[in-house]
Design a protein around this nucleic acid. Structure first.
Length: 426
RNA sequence: GUGGCCGUAGCUCAGUCGGUAGAGCGUCAGUUUGUGGUACUGAAUGUCGCGGGUUCGAUCCCCGUCGGUCACCCCA
């Protein structure tokens, strides 16, 4: 057993999985940059206060934060999400609005790890600050939808809700609290505790015991102001005009309690219900203000990389691209030839590999085969003397009695291979 | 944080009614010595998660611990 291993809920991601990981971010960047979003890179570490502004009733802030006092006496924390950092950056740099940003990176939450739930986990997301337009909500939701489509995911569903204006929401929470208090005895013990902290979250309960009470609860829709109702109607109409299917879920209450108006969540159809939330987001306000800025509306989402990748696995979609090399250089004369040949091939833009430790011809050929290279370049003592090399196709030699290999002068080798590979790939 | 299940070679797992352990895959090397996908032969690798207890003796029983997993919770 190794003396050290990764901390709970944290892990190493090796190739080829890491390749897929990077591709994932690349695809996301392609989708959102096509819509004019610019990447924002923020520190993993922020002043604790940046995150406590997220709200007192969220476990993410109150119980799950990695916080500590640094050597300078500052109370800092590893970010549990990045929306707060985006708002902090907005206040710090006051960019022109609407400010459209995207990000990708790790977040930290001290939770009990499970599959699809890690203490260090990655998210990609977008945030737009400074615009109130319902069509912006539609754009944001549509970009997430388009991203899943680009990955190849088919079984994603979109759940949508509106929490109304802050006043509506406050009024609703009061009504809800009164209702649940009246049905206190019917609630599960866990939900009673939740009720005291945040009545909205009781709607999220997955315990069967709570189902009847939750089903009879007042609806947020009845509390909408005219403005909120109109905003929500426009969002729905916009999604419909883009042919993006959604279902209204009045029980959809996002975890962080800064949301108002539109909230949404993408769910994976193949995942178990406990971990089926692929990503989600919504409209929020008050956050920029809480961080010392002017009143500024915001909207955005964050998508979990792990869960989305799990969903991709279930649908056998977005498989890791193979890092196949083009040419594998076999050198049985000591390795110096392989050094110069691979170097020249790489300079010419080809992916070239070689063997080390002066292994046997057979061993090197095996490695060449495994590398996925389409051609092997073979240099033995004969070739070395003749100033040449053997070029052997590795994938086409299945034909009986046709080795198909040729001897090429070293001076022509690179050009020969470049021409050859261009032909076979196009 | 609470509860259930699990923890044996790099990977997937078998096994010992308690006497320190195996398979497949993978890796490496060979199969008359300059050429890869199949086949054959052979080899290496495990403190049987860790600590303690019971026992003449534990990988197998008991306790604890750590890690994983599932549910709750939370959320991505």
């Amino acid at each position: 057993m190794p003396a050290f291993q990764t901390s709970p809920g944290m892990r190493d991601i090796l190739a080829p999985q890491s390749v897929r990981w990077r591709r994932f971010v690349d695809v996301f960047a392609e989708v959102v940059e096509a819509a004019g979003y610019g990447q924002l890179i923020t520190p993993l570490l922020e002043d604790l206060g940046v995150f406590t502004r997220l709200g007192e009733s969220t476990d993410v802030v109150t119980k799950e934060m990695y916080d500590f006092v640094d050597k300078g006496g500052r109370h800092v924390a590893l970010r549990p999400e990045v929306t707060a950092s985006v708002c902090r950056a907005f206040v710090e740099h006051h960019p022109p609005t609407p400010w459209k940003t995207w990000y990708a990176g790790s977040n930290f939450r001290y939770e009990k790890p499970q599959r699809g739930r890690y203490r260090q986990f990655d998210q990609v997301g977008i945030e737009v600050l400074g615009a109130d337009d319902p069509y912006l909500d539609v754009e944001v939701i549509a970009l997430g939808w388009e991203f899943y489509r680009r990955l190849g995911l088919r079984q994603v569903t979109l759940r949508l809700n509106s929490l109304g204006e802050p006043d509506d929401r406050a009024r609703y929470v009061t009504e809800l609290a009164a209702y649940f208090t009246a049905h206190h005895a019917e609630l599960s013990p866990e939900s009673r505790i939740t009720l005291a902290k945040n009545p909205l979250r009781v709607l999220d309960s997955k315990r069967p015991q709570d189902a009847p009470v939750v089903a009879g609860a007042p609806r947020i829709a009845d509390c909408y102001s005219d403005a909120a109702a109109e905003h929500f109607a426009t969002v729905q109409a916009g999604l419909s005009s883009l042919a993006i299917p959604f279902t209204i879920d009045t029980g959809l209450v996002r975890g962080l309690d800064y949301y108002r108006r539109t909230t949404f969540e993408y769910q994976g159809g193949t995942l178990d219900s406990a971990q089926n939330g692929l990503g989600g987001g919504g409209r929020y306000d008050g956050l920029v203000e809480a961080l010392g800025g002017p009143p500024t509306p915001g909207v955005g989402f964050a998508l979990g990389v792990d869960r989305t990748l799990l969903a991709c696995d279930d649908e056998s979609v977005f498989v890791a691209p193979d890092g196949a090399t083009d040419v594998f250089v076999v050198d049985t004369t000591g390795g110096a030839e392989a050094l110069t040949i691979t170097s020249a091939l790489r300079a010419a833009g080809l992916r070239a590999e070689r063997a080390f430790d002066n292994r046997s011809m057979k061993s090197q050929m095996k490695a060449a085969d495994r590398s996925g290279a389409s051609h092997a370049v073979i240099v033995g003592s004969n070739e070395l003397e003749a100033g040449a090399a053997v070029v052997r196709p590795l994938r086409a030699t299945l034909v009986e009695g046709q080795p198909g290999q040729s001897t090429v002068l070293r001076s022509d080798l690179v050009d020969h291979l470049v021409a050859h590979l261009r032909n076979s790939t196009s």
